[in-house]
Computed example of a mutant assay.
Amino acid sequence: MSDLSQKDIAKRALGLVDLTNLNDDCTEADVSALTSRTVTDHGSVAAVCIWPKFVAQAVRELSGTGVKVATVVNFPAGGTETTAVVAETKKAIEDGADEIDLVMPYRGFMEGRKGFAEEQIIRVKEVIPAPAKLKVILETGEIKDPLLIHLASEIAIGAGADFIKTSTGKVPVNATLEAAEIMLTAIEEARRDHQKDVGFKPAGGIRTVDDAAAYLALADKIMGHNWVSASTFRFGASGLLDALIGEIEGSGATAGEGY
């Protein structure tokens, strides 16, 4: 899979983590606990991903660290009316969010309302000023059909996504290597055919160094070995960081429960 050792893989993956708490019972204290873990002895994670109401707090606590603040909109069901999603996005940007993770209205998309899904992504993108980023969550475990996952990827990319993301972490099937391969292929096609650079974020259920290694190997295979960086690839995870640090330090720590 890779010539790198497990420790090397862990070092590579650490800076790609979006350290996440999207638990329904998340508190201000939980967010502080999360932000306190972002800068480690082995480097910083890429971002924290938290509920919109905690964005301003996270921005304050991470000031000067270089760690981005990501939040979610239209989350997790992907069914909110577009005007409300745009308003939610504007508020998050005003509060200082660097990245918006938007759940594509995937149920409407699956019912054939592709234009509705596309328009919502376009309208959300319009209110996200550079250098802030838009990540579009496809919810591939609910879409299931490989052709529809590919089409959803194409629509999101065409509508302005800076990243496409597998999952919310809130459904029975979240990130899978099968969905990742389809999405990365769509990203490579966009790069080849339209000179458009789009990132990839697997999220939900990624908890071990072996999990991380498998996704990194797939990205290297499809996109090339020099493609993966924090600007193009993220892991959405809560428990992965402990496993990575445990591997780097040789303590054998395992990942915690969670997203």
Results as ranks from 00 to 15, higher is better:
Met104Leu: 15
Glu88Asn: 11
Gly96Asn: 05
Ala117Phe: 03
Glu118Tyr: 01
Val85Arg: 05
Lys125Asn: 06
Asp98Gly: 07
Glu118Trp: 00
Pro105Leu: 04
Asp95Gln: 13
Val124Arg: 04
Glu99Trp: 13
Gly108Met: 10
Ile122Gln: 05
Gly108His: 13
Pro129Leu: 03
Val124Tyr: 02
Glu88Val: 06
Met104Trp: 11
Val127Trp: 14
Val103His: 10
Ala84Asp: 06
Ala87Arg: 15
Glu119Asn: 03
Ile93Arg: 12
Lys133Met: 14
Asp95Leu: 06
Gly115Asn: 01
Pro105Glu: 02
Asp101Asn: 13
Lys133Pro: 04
Ala92Ile: 09
Lys90Ser: 11
Ile93Met: 14
Ala132Thr: 12
Pro129Tyr: 01
Glu119Ser: 03
Ala97Cys: 13
Val85Lys: 09
Tyr106Ala: 11
Gly96Leu: 09
Ile93Leu: 12
Ala132Met: 12
Glu88Ile: 05
Val103Met: 08
Lys91Leu: 15
Ala92His: 12
Ala132Ser: 15
Ala92Asp: 10
Thr89Leu: 08
Leu102Pro: 09
Pro129Gln: 04
Ile93Thr: 09
Ala97Ser: 08
Glu118Gly: 00
Leu102Glu: 15
Glu88Leu: 04
Val86His: 06
Pro105Ile: 04
Leu102Val: 11
Pro131Lys: 08
Ala87Trp: 10
Arg107Glu: 14
Ala84Ile: 04
Gly112Met: 00
Ala87Pro: 07
Ile121Lys: 00
Lys125Phe: 02
Arg107Gly: 15
Glu94Thr: 13
Ile100Arg: 05
Lys133Val: 02
Glu94Gln: 15
Gly96Pro: 06
Arg107Pro: 06
Ala92Arg: 08
Arg113Asp: 05
Arg113Gln: 03
Ile122Thr: 02
Glu88Trp: 10
Phe116Ala: 02
Ala130His: 07
Ala84Leu: 07
Gln120Cys: 04
Glu88Lys: 13
Ala97Met: 09
Ala117Leu: 00
Glu88Ser: 14
Ile93Ser: 13
Val85Glu: 10
Ala87His: 10
Glu126Trp: 04
Val124Lys: 01
Glu94Cys: 10
Lys114His: 04
Glu94Pro: 10
Ala130Tyr: 07
Pro105His: 07
Met110Glu: 10
Phe116Gly: 01
Ile93Asp: 05
Phe116His: 04
Glu88His: 11
Arg113Phe: 05
Arg107Thr: 14
Asp98Ala: 06
Gly115Leu: 03
Val86Met: 13
Ile93Gly: 07
Asp98Thr: 07
